[in-house]
Amino acid sequence: MHSAQGRAADELLRLQDVHKVYGRSRNAVAALAGVSVGFRRHTFTAVMGPSGSGKSTFLHCAALLDRPTSGSVFLEGQDLTAMNERALTKLRRNRIGFVFQNFNLLPALNVVDNVTLPLRLAGRRPDRRLVNEVIERTGLASRRKHRPGELSGGQQQRVAIARALVTRPVLLFGDEPTGALDTQTALEILGLLREAVDGGEQTAVIVTHDPVAASHADRVVFLVDGQVSAELERPSAEQVATQMTRLGAWARTQRPAGVTPTDAERVG
């Protein structure tokens, strides 16, 4: 923990020598192979890589939805890998927000009830003023009583973002948050994420395959074969696409023996 505390004061999240291995012996697949990377407060980072590079595993380990095989994950200097499941669950409810590609809304609940669900699960009484503020910020004021089935995909993702923001998390994770949306709606959603970071409250880390989405980030981290292979600061979509083309060609020639395309798809 001391080494983490000695890092830059503005670093919110750090993965230190994180490994994640699925399976045993000859059937083992190394989804992450010693990832060390930090994320500064109030920044927006996109994580990209070819199929099988470990993006999804990276996100799950960074959020401790899945425990690393070895290595440490620090949030505000605290080693999350040393915490028990009960403490982790409480931390995730209070400090971390999640936005997924498939929205993960409860179909029987209206917008307000879906947004306030994390607070209720944590045993906290929703602050009506804060709930209203989040719903306004995400453009849902006229949809408060609608259920997910009565909303477009973009509106459902706005609900998911509002739900992620309502606990005032320090860290916001997105797993392909614009993957199921059309181009214009995706840009609107990215604008909301950008606003959450620029407002000074959140730090965002998203996994995406879309160079346009990545170009909205302050920084892009590229993974290949479970390792950080490159980074870009404030990139254009064209720069991201060029880097991805290079990495894709490199990854096809470097895939470890015994790792099949099916294995690669599983580790993200």
Rank of each mutant, 00 (worst) to 15 (best):
V134E: 03
H2G: 07
Q101M: 01
A122K: 11
R40W: 12
N132R: 07
L109N: 10
S25F: 06
A162E: 08
L187A: 15
F39L: 11
E238I: 10
V99R: 07
H209P: 09
G23H: 08
A28K: 15
R246F: 07
N84K: 04
N104V: 06
V212H: 04
D198T: 15
R137N: 11
M1G: 02
S3E: 14
F100S: 11
T183F: 12
G200D: 13
R24Q: 12
F74T: 13
P118R: 12
L223E: 13
A249M: 00
A82G: 05
N84C: 09
S36M: 04
V37I: 12
Q156H: 00
V99S: 03
P118D: 06
V207I: 13
V159D: 00
K90A: 15
R144C: 12
L105T: 04
L91F: 07
F44Q: 09
V267F: 00
S25C: 08
T81L: 10
S152I: 09
E231N: 11
F222E: 03
H216V: 10
F103K: 06
R24H: 11
F222K: 07
G23P: 11
N110F: 00
I206G: 04
R137F: 01
N114E: 12
Q155H: 08
S53M: 06
T57H: 04
R168K: 09
D210M: 05
T208R: 01
T167G: 14
T245R: 10
T116F: 02
R219M: 05
A4P: 01
M244V: 05
